[in-house]
């Protein structure tokens, strides 16, 4: 009995030692030489492996940062400027700051604005639906509502609003990784400048049909009338193919265009809301209710109704 135990222990120990030597030799022979800085850079990255930077994952991004002469072409949208500063300090290089971005859904074709003209009965995926036909409304450009953007978002920042049938971006959670932009077959979602105090003005429509056609399909469509472009003092608005577009690098958030738009296609979000005038107690100074008061407020929900905007001016 004891001899059996002794033998067993001896053989196992010997085997273990032998295999350890083999492992050591193999590890030595196949060792991959890697820049140690890659590990260091990877440590300061968020580690979401979302691919928002255009690389396969955080490690690939770290490798690219280490190999590139400067950081101009590499940016981690999730970590933002803070992370890039850390990366720069690890590598000992300079980094330019980038304005924070956010995903913006440019469609306001709610169930009410854009009546359904047919019923979709296939697999619930925007890609499948888009490959089949123009969609279940009269608008062949707008949101298909199957939520491909929602399922690709790794940060839980997009959700479908069952009332409007449109996706809504949570600006606090959105990291501007761009996954939803790529996933949307209709190219409705755009990464835009987050703006000062999250204030943004944008055209919430991508319909390039002629005005009458677009208007017939959706009450809130951009009809390409060009009033906004004329009203813009900064030349930030261009109208091409019956569709207005606001260049966020030029927009100064004056909101003149918002007042001009006949269909309410231009949205201004996170601006202070004025209470309706007849409110007897309110004095003008007390009026502004900051959007910041409710940070988790959804973008669409914060859209100002048109009449109050006019009153502000």
């Amino acid at each position: 009995m004891t001899t059996t135990i002794i033998w067993t222990i001896a053989i196992i120990t010997l085997l273990g030692a032998l295999l350890a030597v083999v492992l050591y030799l193999v590890a030595k022979k196949f060792k991959v030489e890697e820049d140690p800085r890659i590990d260091e850079v990877e440590k300061v990255l968020p580690g979401a492996n979302c691919g928002g930077c255009g690389h396969a994952g955080c490690r690939a991004f770290a490798q690219s940062c280490v190999e590139a002469p400067n950081l101009d072409n590499n940016f981690c949208p999730v970590g933002g400027n803070d992370t890039m500063k850390k990366v720069a300090s690890v590598l000992g290089v300079e980094v330019k700051e980038k304005a924070p971005m956010v995903a913006v859904v440019r469609c306001n074709g709610t169930c009410e604005n854009r009546p359904r003209t047919n019923e979709y009965g296939g697999y619930s995926s925007c890609r499948v639906k888009a490959a089949l036909y123009s969609g279940d409304t009269g608008c062949s450009f707008g949101c298909l509502g199957c939520g491909d953007c929602v399922s690709v978002c790794q940060f839980g920042a997009i959700a479908m609003n069952p009332e409007t049938g449109l996706p809504e971006v949570d600006q606090e959670k959105c990291t501007a990784c761009g996954a939803c932009v790529k996933a949307c077959p209709k190219a409705i979602i755009e990464l835009r400048n987050k703006g000062a105090r999250n204030k943004r003005v944008f055209v919430s429509c991508v319909n390039r049909d002629k005005g009458a056609v677009a208007r017939k399909a959706c009450k809130a469509a951009c009809i390409g009338c060009g009033k906004c472009a004329k009203a813009c003092p900064f030349g930030a608005i261009t109208v091409e193919n019956n569709l207005a577009y606001i260049d966020f690098t030029k927009c100064k958030l004056c909101k003149k265009c918002v007042a001009e738009c006949p269909t309410g296609a231009i949205h201004a979000v996170n601006f202070p809301v004025l209470k309706p005038k007849p409110a007897p107690v309110a004095k003008p100074a007390e009026v502004p209710v900051k959007a910041e008061a409710a940070p988790a407020q959804k973008e669409q929900a914060a859209v100002n109704p048109q009449p109050t905007e006019k009153k502000e001016e």
Partner: peptide, 12 residues
């Protein structure tokens, strides 16, 4: 299972 719906996209 919507096999073809999904396969058609993958094929493309």
């Amino acid at each position: 299972i919507p096999l073809l719906d999904i396969i058609r996209i993958a094929k493309g």
